[in-house]
Design a protein around this nucleic acid. Structure first.
Lengths: 238, 238
DNA sequence: CCAATAGTGTCTATCAGACATTATCTA
DNA sequence: TAGATAATGTCTGATAGACACTATTGG
């Protein structure tokens, strides 16, 4: 039999296969707290519980897994996140009561301000404090997935400035440092933090300043294009 | 409707979903070359081409994605690899002629010696030089996947001794350094390489020595249990 | 002894940690 | 001017790079 004939006769459903979904852990930063976007499930299974924004691949609409993740996030936030990368896939026989299931998970970040107006209109979506989420009982294994994503983000905060994607396009260095400290879970040396960013030339000084409640105003910066993919050769202490 | 009723009525095949497979990039080291285990496809599609060892989840047999990967590798090598971690999932509408498909990929390493006798008996499996593989036209997008796995391994060689899993249980430091140099693609300073391993206390000196073709014999070491998960705070230069 | 390979000593360069100091804003 | 916050200066310590040196084997 040649391949053409094989493909014409091929029945995708001849073997039982796992259920496959795409879920995303979307991080942001607001009120000095790390937030994750959650959705209240309106359908079975796990109806009524909160879980990650996710869904199924639309075989007609989606060109790739990443497109699926972007489409689902766009539905909840109205925009696509400036940072999105695949986290990991989780699959086993017991994580979903419907049977063997696999979820391809993405980790994403965006500025809280850039989507909060829209999120506020979506009745089933909400930004929740990550420490609060840890106390909640989420749908499926979404609690474990968020813990994984958080730990990965923590590692990235030690050798990159990827957390900057959770800030508005323009931000100050003290803001970025506060965010890193929050993610890493310990205070950082101001000098060390600034020195490495300056040496790697990751940011552009907009020339603008922001007044604080009191004290000297801070300079506003924005990321250079390559700043997200830059990794420092040496980690901050863990 | 309550959840119990929902689950009883649930039909997994009501929506069309992507085909899902598990593939592994199994690395090893032999004759001063980096090897990857490939399999010649005996079935459509892409029959006759070489590709990664892979297959489908067995909903009855497999408890998790990792179990599936281990089972498939065990079939080809007779043993399970001492190092196995999820690489990434690749999924889009065009990578498989049968339609939208997702592959959850694992990256693994094992000693060449520990499975070569068995691999030699499997007519459709073979260790191939990774540089040779780069010139070949593999099935599906397996060439891209191997390139990804190789780059990830290269990064790991800069901040860990994970490549040691491609060596026999006992090995010498010059052997390990040669392997790292091969993976990274440039020579390393002997002193730097040895110093960091010694300081982190990652290896155990077996007390045994191995004679070389000529010159001073090298000491034989084996990895401590935690050595694979240790990461140096500072990378080797890239 | 010589050639070859394993393994060490030691100096320098780089960069993070620590913390003091200066700069610039508001009340 | 005082208080607060941003930004910088500078010393120390840890660790990788460079490379010379010593050690141990076989022929």
């Amino acid at each position: 039999m040649d391949e053409k004939r094989f493909l014409a006769d091929y029945d995708k459903q001849q073997f039982d296969s796992p259920l496959i979904s795409i879920d995303s852990v979307l991080f942001s930063y607001h009120d000095e707290r790390l937030k994750v976007l959650l959705v209240e499930r309106s359908n079975h299974p796990e109806r009524g519980k909160w879980g990650l924004p996710g869904g199924f691949v639309d075989l007609q609409l989606d060109q790739s897994l990443e497109h699926t993740a972007r489409r689902i996030l766009r539905d909840k936030t109205s925009i696509e996140p400036p940072y999105l990368e695949q986290l990991q896939s989780f699959g086993n026989a017991s994580r979903d009561k419907r049977g063997w299931s696999v979820t391809v998970c993405y980790s994403a970040m965006m500025a809280y301000q850039s989507c909060e107006p829209h999120v506020a209109t979506v009745t089933d979506a909400q930004w929740l404090d990550i420490d609060l989420i840890e106390q909640m009982e989420l749908a499926f294994d979404h609690g474990d997935i968020i813990a994984h994503a958080r730990e990965r983000l923590r590692q990235k905060a030690l050798y990159s400035i990827i957390p900057a994607y959770a800030l508005p396009e323009q931000f100050t260095l003290p803001e970025l440092q506060q965010l890193h400290e929050l993610i890493i879970g310990k205070p950082l040396q101001k000098k060390s933090f600034r020195r490495r960013i300056e040496q790697a030339e990751l940011l552009i000084d907009t020339g603008k300043k922001v007044s604080q409640k009191s004290g000297r105003p801070a300079s506003l910066y924005r990321m250079k294009d390559m700043a997200g993919s830059y990794t420092f050769v040496r980690n901050l202490e863990d």
